[in-house]
Nucleic acid binder design. Structure first.
Length: 262
DNA sequence: ATGGTAGCGCTGCTA
């Protein structure tokens, strides 16, 4: 199985890039975040033409998550398990079963500023995600933009982030709880030494070309899958302008591969 | 270089 997770920062702005990437890389499952579109505007037909079933959860100009699959897409649920999709105000989690694996595409709240109500919301959202994961039986991959750098090896300069969101002990503890529960950070399992690789670079100040990024996009997998991992890497090329009219996303795709059960 | 980038959408918010 080859799975990719990619915060595209507007699917409308990135559609050409996403389609080209899918054709070049042929993932079995593709999780997208920050689609910034409503369900009615989601280009399901374009993805179907490439061989993908798809599900989307979005309501307009912010947030929005999707799952594309060419190995089946069953038991789709938008939002947390205990909420009705129609009542969700911030579309940040979508689940589906693809090829026998429960896949969660998540876009964790940014938090904005330490101590703000948005920061508290981020922490409570992560706690809710932990409870959500605990309900899942069988193989599982939780992937997306976590807006948390798990350790100092996941930021270009720890000193530059003192007092900032994404690196506080509380955020790291909330993420660490998912690992304590048995999930494995796929990239770090295969690439134990940092710093990096990074998955996000600020658009401002030429951060990408200066290597000033963070690793905040993650694929957390259950132990069975962790034991069968064969690859995990960040496609930095997709963060470059390339032969496209529009800008790249500020995030690069994270690809994870594992052997299917014999 | 007194601003820095990008998307959405039309004013300022979000990241």
């Amino acid at each position: 199985m080859r799975l990719v997770t990619w915060n595209v920062n507007s699917l409308k702005a990135r559609q050409e890039r996403v389609e080209a990437w899918l054709e070049d890389n042929e993932p079995d499952v593709c999780c997208l975040q920050e689609t910034k579109c409503a369900d009615t505007a989601f280009p399901a037909a374009a993805f179907a033409a490439l061989g993908y079933e798809s599900a989307h959860h979005g309501n307009g100009r912010w947030n929005g998550v999707a799952i594309l699959s060419r190995v089946g897409l069953d038991d789709v649920h938008a939002g947390f398990a205990d909420e009705d999709a129609a009542s969700v105000t911030e579309c940040r989690i979508l689940a589906a079963t693809c090829g026998g694996v429960r896949v969660l595409s998540v876009y964790v709240p940014n938090g904005r500023a330490v101590g703000s109500e948005h920061y508290d919301f981020k922490l409570s959202w992560l706690a809710r995600l932990r409870a959500e994961i605990a309900r899942v039986e069988g193989e599982l991959v939780v992937c997306g933009d976590f807006n948390v750098a798990p350790s100092d090896a996941d930021v270009f300069d720890p000193a530059a982030f003192v007092g900032m969101t994404h690196v506080t002990p509380a955020e790291r503890a909330a993420l660490g709880a998912l690992l304590d529960d048995g999930l494995v950070d796929a990239l770090r399992r295969l690439q134990p030494k940092g710093p990096g690789p990074f998955t996000w670079w600020d658009y401002r100040g030429g951060a990408f070309h200066k290597g000033e990024g963070m690793r905040i996009d993650l694929a957390l997998c259950s132990r069975g899958i962790a034991g069968r991992l064969t690859g995990a890497f960040v496609d930095r090329e997709a963060r470059k302008k390339g032969a496209f009219d529009s800008s790249p996303s500020d995030h690069a795709p994270l690809v994870v591969e594992w052997r299917d059960t014999p």
